[in-house]
Design a protein around this nucleic acid. Sequence first.
DNA 1: GCCGTTTTCGGCCCGACTGTTTTCAGTCG
Length: 574
Amino acid sequence: MARANDEVEALLQEYADLIAITGGDAFKARAYEKAARAIGGHPADVSKLDEDGLREIPNVGRSIAAKVAEYLRTGKMAAVEEQRAEIPAGVRELITIPTLGPKKALRLHEALHISSVNELAAAIEADALADLKGFGEKTQDNIRHGIELLRQSGGRVPLALALDTAEEIVAELSAVTGCRRCAYAGSLRRMRETVGDVDVLVAAAKSEPFMAALCGLPGTAEVIARGTKKTSVRTGKGLQVDLRVLPPASWGAGLQYFTGAKAHNIRTRTIAVHRGLKLSEYGLFETESGKSVASRTEEEVYARLGLPWIPPTLREDRGEIEAALRGALPDVVTERDIRGDLHTHTDLTDGLASLEVMVEAAAERGYAYYAVTDHAPDMPMQRMTDEKILAQRERLRELDGTRRRMRLLHGTELNIGPDGEVDWPDAFLAGFDLCVASLHSHFDLGRGPMTRRLVRACENPYVHVLGHPTTRLIGRRPGVDADWDEVFAACARTGTALEVNAQPDRLDLCDEDILRARAHGVRFAVNTDAHSVPQLAQLRYGIGTAQRGWLTPDEVINTWPLTRLRRFLRKGRR
DNA sequence: GCCGTTTTCGGCCCGACTGTTTTCAGTCG
């Protein structure tokens, strides 16, 4: 279910954007942003809090608490409604374009009445920005490129948003009388990083109540098509949802049919044909007699095709059929295999929760170990000092083993400088149990220098994990350019793990890079990079991505027992 | 708008990069 916290966060962030766009007080906009983030990252459900409770959340004061309470009570926030009436939604959409912020968006709106990304693209095409102050040739190039990046996601929505929507709908439909089974399928079940539309399946004798329920959901903005077998709607957030209702006996066949990528399904149907069978969403049938031979479960369907059950995340026709036929499918890593998170933050830097709160939440998840890796000093805005990180270490040692016997590792997230150097000298780095090293600046060095930079970071004996290696942001920024095969080889040679960062806008490495890297014999770490308690649960997106990269537990260092992990962290040192 | 071991005013994470308005505004992490 989408948490009320997430809804409030989105609304307050929207208000902050609108203040910035209308040229309001920048500090006021910042205040709303901070409150939005604090509420999104707050462990307790805000819909259960009254105004006093809300005010106990850091950065939420009298005014914001009142607005949140108003929203929770009425479903509306008057202040936001008023701003919306002033500024078309498309103007806010403009600031999602990289390099285009609130100031430029407002100028475009005021001078040229541009109020959508499409209008802006057309204006640039028509050279209508030529006389506009502050929009020189380079700026226009950057905007054009930014729009291109946005469009590459092709109207697809981030996995996390689609998953929230799908889980909500599945919960609603499961409660309808007559529901035998209900689940989401499609690219969402395959955990693709972006999702075009959400496919929901129901097994039931009668379809009508489910079609009615879907059309009547509060999140449903528009009914695109409504029939007895299939209904399509669009949600308020612009996401298309397709519902199929199947006879209960067809459940497995339906799930198989609507989950696999097109190429995977063509392969399975071809195998069926060669066996004198026909595969559809209703079942697997003998071609001659039309007699059903399998349909109730996916396992049955695959088995009758001579295949083991294939995990949904592998159903892309990237070799899984051949592997299945050989009996060589990977035993992919699952959330249950993860024994600890190796990249997390606290409020010592840009995290929201204290060390104690993060440790408690990690212990609740049943981890055997947990690493705290706050930012190192070369990221100036975090104001890290030797004293602060050493004081944190002291406190962490006190907490070590006290929460469900969970062991704590003291780490840091280093910044990889332009030449591959990191924040602290070796003697100081030696005091950490674990160091993640990441790129946070100088993204445009060019392939040669970037490759040397990353390789040099791997060669540092104190760097254990390369954090979000390509530093891409899905739909907003491509990954840095480097000779990745050379970097992956360096990781394998030096015993440096590559991170699979689970933040839903990163998923970095991505599935294809993982497949390429694992061919070099690299180890991986699936980490959340959590900046708050709720973000610890984002592990699932990292696991989905790891599975899509065919990773097995043995390749993922944070599935290992602590003694084996510690051996890896020695990295050839004694 | 929030916050307070500078507590009811006056600050607010700091620095780098980019393009262009050539002395700095806008954007980003």
